[in-house]
């Protein structure tokens, strides 16, 4: 997917980074069932940290930017057909993200038990499926609309806001 405007390109790049993290979650965590990873399992620990960073950092700033700056503009222009659905999905993803962070923080203190690991994997699976579905909608609907709707000035202003 190629974009002429900076704003959809920045959002697209964030989607790519998110997908890379989710792929790692699937490959490293979800593909292994059974016992929780040991403290010495560097790849698993690194993936858990990456997922936590995504859910409490990049994901939240991405959603906030869309809700505060893009959705109102699209609604005002009459291009907001998807914004209610996307906002609802943001709420669901924030909720799942909070549960994931709580689970990984608890595990950081006392380690995963087999039961808490099962719960954690369930949340990982939910995060992957919901997030991939959400990115699908943004890539297919939101970013093309933005590419058409933004003029160069508005695009530069939004891109600066996003990077700032």
């Amino acid at each position: 997917m190629s974009f002429m405007r900076s704003t959809p390109r920045l959002l697209h790049d964030e989607h790519l980074a998110t997908i890379a993290t989710l792929d790692a979650v699937e490959r490293v965590l979800l593909s292994r069932r059974g016992n929780p990873p040991s403290a010495g399992d560097v790849e698993a620990q690194r993936t858990i940290v990456k997922l936590s960073r995504l859910t409490e950092g990049e994901m939240l700033s991405h959603f906030d930017f869309e809700e505060q700056h893009l959705f109102p503009m699209l609604i005002e222009r009459g291009d907001g057909g998807m914004t209610d659905v996307l906002s609802e999905e943001h709420d669901l993803l924030r909720e799942t993200g909070q549960e994931l962070i709580a689970a990984s923080k608890a595990a950081a203190e006392s380690g995963f038990t087999p039961e808490s690991w099962r719960d954690y994997l369930r949340l990982c699976g939910e995060m992957v499926e919901r997030m991939i579905g959400h990115i699908q909608k943004e890539e297919m609907a939101l970013l093309p609309v933005l590419e058409d709707a933004l003029d160069p000035d508005a695009d530069a202003e939004l891109a600066a806001l996003h990077q700032g």
């Binding site: 609604i75 009459g78 907001g80 057909g81 998807m82 914004t83 209610d84 659905v85």
Partner: peptide, 11 residues
């Protein structure tokens, strides 16, 4: 278009 009518058209 208001958000209400937008929601209506989506539904």
């Amino acid at each position: 278009m208001t958000s209400a009518s937008m929601m209506a058209s989506a539904k």
